[in-house]
Design a binder for these strands. Structure first.
Length: 798
DNA sequence: TGTGAGACTTGGAATAATCTTC
DNA sequence: GAAGATTATTCCAAGTCTCACA
């Protein structure tokens, strides 16, 4: 076994960096012109902007440009405005002039460790029973948190809002986040003004449906309830399955209640001991039966095994759009020729003459057979799968059993790149043990390779979190087998990510002021950096690293925007239109500050299609600049920060006296606002229209029933009939809410934001405040992923 | 200083499992 | 209990970012 020396020097901050940060800050403060207030360009969510549902061309593409105000003028009055007075941002921003030079010191890793550690200390490990009894009300005892206090005392007192915030960060983490994010919080004001403004539900408040009506007394506290959503709704006994879930919960390793300072360490070693059973390889190829044959030019052709396998891959994709793409077909033919025998090569030369349909039909039959398996057969297969999970699905890390996320090695097939990927249709070859590097403890018994094979290498590298890796034949990049999202390693990383985004809140004013000032710099590179950062911050654009067009699809992010990706319209509108990650189209029209607009004119001058808009800027330079403000700050953190802040602000619109359905709708709307901001789109589900029609019919039917019931009550004045009327009314309201929610979700993908950008503590605290069972928002897997956040105090603020 | 390898997160679609309705 | 709808899970592509090295 090879012992791998840690090659990563994880300690990020050093004297130079801090000095640089401080001197930069001093320079900016000295220059100190008040920046113009520029609200976040959160695109307003409206159903108008949903994509056309007419088919393939419109897939995952926002069709209607959305105008976003990014100017400093107060936005038009909207229901959302009530949350924060107008003009708040500019007012509050002027207070920030005295921002302390010690910001970056306060934000270093030590500080994070202190905050996290204090959080751990503040959440004394309650017995499961005690926790279940009073989870949300647990007031945290005051904790020392030296680092946090130091941080706080280092702040200049005139920075009253920030320092109070810092104090919060100290006590906050210990569970008494005082909710100082009141109206005087400048950042709140800022975000409030700019976050998307979804419409208020067009639904009248329903009498709480029977489930929602379960009294708070009897309802399990949000965030820690062990009951599944149904039970939380109050309609049933705890099933066997739920009991099992409860048992599983008992096994959870509550790492977040331990000493997090030690866990963070210097970051160079992620574990001490690791053992596992290796990976599950794709099965060997089995020849097709004689009835599944291939025809060329109308003639049945017997194929060699490798050729047949490839032909099979193609046949399996006949129903997809890929086979209509020239590049896919071209690459496939190249691959096919590589594996064909001499005779096959001589015969099979034209894809148009290939007939895969018999094989396709065979696959279809097999699918049907699988679908129609008997109960017993299904149970047997399930049991088999469970065995595999038992064998490969877990590892032992530092003495604890952890679930592995992807123990199955990716099977061979035709590469399905997204968008116009130059490699689509190429063969993703079979991964064999000789390709795989195993990572485990020196003192453990390495997993045995399959008989007759050996691993590429067995190493012991404690600085990484992967258990196995191999190089992907298509991209040439490594693929990894890693732990499940509920694991300690992933959870800790997640927690750190959100803490970093929260740290950004303390620096954001300064950063915004700084880049606003830089917009007028005489140096073109600085001006470009400032303008790009403005878009990253305001529009939540991705950073946009350089890409190789020969190897990857032509997609861009902010720094890689080209001349043709923006169009300028007098007096100050910028129209964005480009393909972002996963070739998802980003279309947005934004009114910008005059300075931004003028800069863009300059950046476009003497350029043509294909030229970089920010030609003097690299992502490395941008991130380097950001690190000077706050250690560990990169462009990506802005997305997390803006997403979480937006959620928090939008959740303030939750109706306090609404039904659970209405509250959940409010949550989904807040979630949706973030998804719109981050441009998380999905294709319209195939039967969307049909489903909506059915919902309409259902609503009409219940309304009819309601009218009948009303008539009967009017005639009889029977109290029982009155109750029936109430029930039906609630049902109509609930259905209308469901329909509204579904309709607004038509082209928006909510889960990405929920899983990756929204600090779960905001959600859990909201659940507790509004008496919404957390099961209504997070499913079981999500609750496991965010287990570390479940004990958050009710008044937590991001 | 630029480049590429390496490690990890983010992302939507496909598929499987479960729930609801008739 | 079958069919259809909904939700959860899996899959794997495609980003970001760091670090070592030339």
């Amino acid at each position: 076994m090879t012992d791998v020396e840690p090659k990563l020097s994880v300690k990020r901050e050093n004297e130079d960096t801090l000095e640089a940060a401080d001197s930069k800050r001093a320079r900016l403060d000295a220059n100190g012109d008040e920046p113009s207030a520029t609200p976040v360009g959160v695109r307003k969510h409206s159903r108008d902007q949903t994509a056309d549902e007419n088919g393939a061309d419109t897939k995952r593409v926002r069709q209607t440009p959305v105008k976003t105000e990014v100017k400093s003028e107060p936005a038009a009055a909207s229901p959302r405005k009530a949350a924060t007075p107008k003009g708040k941002y500019a007012e509050a921003d002027s207070d920030s002039e005295s921002e302390s030079n010690s910001d970056s010191d306060a934000d270093d890793k030590k500080s994070l460790a202190a905050r996290l550690a204090s959080k751990a200390k503040a959440s004394p490990k309650p017995s499961p029973k005690a926790k279940a009894a009073a989870p949300s009300s647990a007031k945290k005892a005051p904790t020392p948190k030296k680092a946090a206090k130091k941080e706080s005392s280092d702040e200049e007192s005139e920075e009253s809002e920030d320092s109070s915030e810092d104090e919060d960060d100290g006590s906050d983490e210990s569970g008494s986040d005082s909710g100082s994010d009141d109206d005087s919080d400048d950042e709140d004001a800022y975000d409030d003004e700019d976050a998307p403004k979804p419409k208020k539900p067009a639904v009248k408040k329903a009498a709480s449906p029977k489930k929602a009506a379960a009294s708070p007394k009897t309802k399990p506290a949000a965030g820690t309830s062990k009951k599944a959503s149904k039970s939380a709704d109050g309609d049933g006994a705890v099933t066997k399955k739920k009991k099992k879930a409860d048992e599983d919960d008992e096994d959870v390793h509550k790492w977040w209640e331990e000493d997090l300072t030690a866990m963070l360490g210097d970051g160079s070693e992620r574990w001490q001991t690791l053992s596992h059973n290796g990976v599950m390889l794709a099965p060997e190829y089995v020849a097709l039966p004689p009835q599944a044959f291939f025809k060329y030019n109308g003639q049945k052709v017997a194929l060699s095994l490798p050729t047949e396998e490839l032909i099979g891959f193609y046949a399996a994709m006949l129903k997809s759009d890929y086979v209509t793409k020239d590049k896919f077909n071209e690459n496939f033919m190249v691959e096919l020729r590589k594996v064909m025998t001499k005779e096959e090569k001589a015969l099979i030369t034209d894809l148009a003459k290939c007939d895969f349909t018999v094989i396709q039909d065979y696959f279809e039959q097999q699918r049907e057979i699988r679908k129609n398996r008997t109960k017993e057969e299904k149970a047997a297969i399930k049991a088999q799968n469970e065995e595999l999970v038992k064998q490969y699905g877990f590892c032992l890390m530092d003495g604890r059993k952890e679930r592995i996320a992807n123990f199955r090695v990716e099977p061979p097939g035709l590469f399905r790149g997204r968008g116009d990927h130059p490699k689509m249709g190429m063969l993703k070859r079979r991964v064999v043990p000789e390709d795989i590097t195993i990572n485990c403890s020196k003192d453990s018994t390495p997993p045995a390779p399959p008989a007759g094979h050996k691993w590429k290498e067995v190493i012991c590298n404690k600085t990484v979190t992967w258990l196995a890796s191999w190089v992907d034949g298509i991209s040439g990049h490594a693929k990894y087998v890693m732990l499940n999202s509920a694991s300690k390693l992933k959870g800790l990383n997640d927690m750190k990510k959100y803490e970093k985004a929260r740290d950004l809140k303390k620096h954001i004013k300064h950063i915004r002021r700084s880049y606003t000032e830089d917009m007028s710099s005489k140096e073109m590179a600085i001006r470009q950096r400032a303008t790009a950062l403005h878009f990253i911050d305001r529009l939540a654009l991705r950073c946009g690293n350089e890409k190789d067009p020969e190897e990857q699809a032509d997609t861009v992010g902010c720094c890689s925007l080209r001349f043709e990706h923006i169009k300028l319209e007098e007096p100050s509108t910028v129209h964005f239109d480009f393909l972002g990650k996963d070739s998802i189209r980003y279309q947005n029209s934004v009114d910008v500050e005059e300075r931004v607009y003028k800069n863009l004119i300059i950046f476009q001058k003497n350029k043509e299609e294909g030229d970089l808009l920010f030609d003097r800027l690299t992502t490395t330079a941008l991130n380097k600049y950001l690190t000077d403000f706050m250690p560990g700050l990169t462009a990506k953190v802005f997305r997390t920060y803006n997403a979480s802040i937006t959620l928090q602000e939008q959740l303030k619109l939750t109706p306090t006296d609404g039904s659970i359905h209405e509250k959940v709708l409010a949550y989904n709307r807040a979630n949706r606002a973030v998804a719109v901001l981050c441009n998380h789109q999905r294709s319209v589900p195939k039967k969307f229209g049909e489903q909506m029609d059915k919902m309409d019919e259902k609503i009409e039917a219940v309304k009819k029933e309601l009218n009948e019931a009303r008539k009967v009550y009017k005639e009889t004045k029977d109290e029982k009939k009155k109750a029936a009327v109430e029930r039906l009314k609630a049902r109509v309201d609930s259905l209308v809410i469901q329909k509204t929610d579904k309709d607004e979700n038509k082209t928006i993908a909510l889960s990405t934001a929920k899983l990756n950008y929204l600090d779960p503590r905001i959600t859990v605290a909201w659940c507790k405040r509004y008496d919404v069972p957390v099961e209504k928002i997070y499913n079981k897997t999500q609750r496991s992923k965010f287990a570390w956040s479940m004990g958050v105090p009710t008044d937590f603020t991001f």
